[in-house]
Amino acid sequence: MREPAPEGPPPERPPPAPSGAGREGDGGICTPAGSHDAALPPRPHPTRVREKGPFAFAECGCGWRGPARRARDRARTDAAGHP
Rank of each mutant, 00 (worst) to 15 (best):
P32G: 03
P67G: 12
P32R: 14
G34F: 10
E7K: 12
V49K: 10
R23F: 11
S19F: 07
T31W: 09
G27W: 09
D78G: 03
P14R: 15
E7M: 12
R2H: 05
G28T: 13
G61T: 07
R65A: 05
P54Y: 12
R65D: 00
R23P: 00
E7T: 11
G27Y: 12
A75N: 04
P14D: 14
R74E: 06
E12R: 15
G25E: 02
R50F: 09
R76D: 03
L40R: 15
P83V: 04
R13P: 00
P42Y: 01
P9G: 00
K52F: 07
T77Q: 13
R23G: 01
P83I: 02
R70N: 01
K52D: 05
P14G: 05
G63E: 07
E59I: 01
G25P: 01
H45V: 10
S19A: 05
R23N: 07
R50V: 13
C60Y: 04
E24V: 15
G81L: 03
G66S: 05
W64E: 03
P14N: 08
W64F: 13
H45E: 04
P32V: 13
P11N: 08
P44M: 03
E51A: 12
P67N: 08
E12C: 07
S35L: 04
I29H: 11
R43W: 04
A80T: 05
L40A: 12
A68Q: 08
C60Q: 06
R70P: 00
G28C: 14
H36L: 01
G20T: 03
C60L: 08
S19W: 05
